[in-house]
Simulated assay, not measured.
Amino acid sequence: MKIIAYSLFIISLDQLSKFLVLNILGFERSKNIIPNLLNFTLIKNKGAAFSLFSNSTNLLTITSVLASLFLITIILNYQTKSYWNSIGLAYLLGGTVGNGIDRLFKGYVLDFLELVPINFPIFNLADISINIAIICFIVDITKDKSRIKY
């Protein structure tokens, strides 16, 4: 249940950040947050990562819902094998549900974090959570392999 609780915290943080940026900044405007590093620029992303599958909102919504249900099933029915695996599942579920809520209720995902010095797609906290999950899974796999003696 700790994994679900942590996921709910991530989802809340993601949704709150999107709500605040939408209400304070709105669309079509950009606000510099950290000079030469970070802007808040709110956009509607109708695709997936890097705006892939831009015209597939229904498919992405269904995929997001199914992935979220699959993750919840794994979390509730199987004991996680390690700390890193547990943290990875919490972040993955939080990020998947965070963006899934946007797709389900808005038809697009709100992205607002823009890295100024590089030409990188605008993203949000749910996207960061999914990337943290991947890092956690890599650490988990690497850590287990380092214990193996040949």
Results as ranks from 00 to 15, higher is better:
Met1Pro: 08
Met1Asp: 04
Ile3Ala: 10
Ile3Leu: 10
Ile4Tyr: 01
Ala5Thr: 15
Ile10Ala: 00
Ile10Glu: 01
Ile11Pro: 00
Leu13Gly: 08
Leu13Ala: 11
Leu13Pro: 03
Asp14Ala: 03
Leu16Glu: 03
Phe19His: 12
Val21Arg: 04
Asn23Gly: 08
Ile24Glu: 04
Leu25Thr: 12
Gly26Cys: 09
Gly26Asn: 13
Phe27Pro: 03
Glu28Cys: 09
Lys31Phe: 07
Asn32Gly: 08
Ile33Lys: 08
Leu37Asp: 10
Leu37Ala: 14
Leu38Trp: 01
Phe40Ala: 00
Lys44Thr: 12
Lys44Met: 09
Asn45Val: 02
Asn45Ser: 03
Asn45Leu: 02
Asn45Asp: 04
Lys46Val: 04
Ala48Arg: 08
Ala48Glu: 00
Ala48Gln: 02
Phe50Ser: 10
Leu52Arg: 03
Phe53His: 05
Ser54Pro: 09
Asn55Thr: 05
Asn55Trp: 00
Asn55Cys: 03
Ser56Gln: 13
Ser56Val: 08
Asn58His: 07
Thr61Tyr: 13
Thr61Ala: 14
Val65Ser: 04
Leu66Tyr: 02
Ala67Ser: 15
Ala67Pro: 10
Leu69Val: 01
Leu69Ile: 01
Phe70Gly: 13
Leu71Phe: 11
Thr73Met: 07
Leu76Cys: 05
Tyr78Cys: 08
Lys81Glu: 09
Lys81Met: 14
Tyr83His: 06
Asn85Trp: 10
Gly88Tyr: 01
Gly88Pro: 12
Ala90Met: 15
Tyr91Gly: 06
Tyr91Glu: 03
Leu92Cys: 02
Leu92Ile: 01
Leu92Asn: 00
Leu93Asp: 00
Gly94Phe: 12
Thr96Ile: 05
Val97Asn: 09
Gly98Met: 06
Gly98Cys: 08
Asn99Tyr: 03
Gly100Phe: 14
Leu104Ala: 03
Leu104Glu: 00
Tyr108Gln: 07
Asp111Arg: 11
Asp111Lys: 10
Phe112Cys: 15
Phe112Ser: 15
Phe112Lys: 14
Leu113Lys: 11
Leu113Gly: 11
Glu114His: 01
Glu114Val: 02
Glu114Gly: 01
Ile118Trp: 07
Asn119Lys: 14
Pro121Tyr: 00
Phe123Cys: 13
Asn124Trp: 02
Leu125Gln: 07
Leu125Arg: 10
Ser129Thr: 10
Ser129Cys: 10
Ile130Gly: 10
Asn131Thr: 08
Asn131Gln: 11
Ile132Leu: 14
Ala133His: 06
Ala133Asn: 08
Ala133Leu: 03
Ile134Leu: 07
Ile134Gln: 07
Phe137Pro: 14
Phe137Met: 09
Ile138Thr: 05
Val139Pro: 00
Val139Cys: 11
Asp140Phe: 14
Thr142Leu: 13
Thr142Val: 13
Lys143Cys: 05
Lys143Pro: 00
Lys143Tyr: 14
Lys145His: 02
Lys145Trp: 05
Lys145Arg: 06
Arg147Met: 11
Ile148Asn: 04
Tyr150Gln: 10
Tyr150His: 09
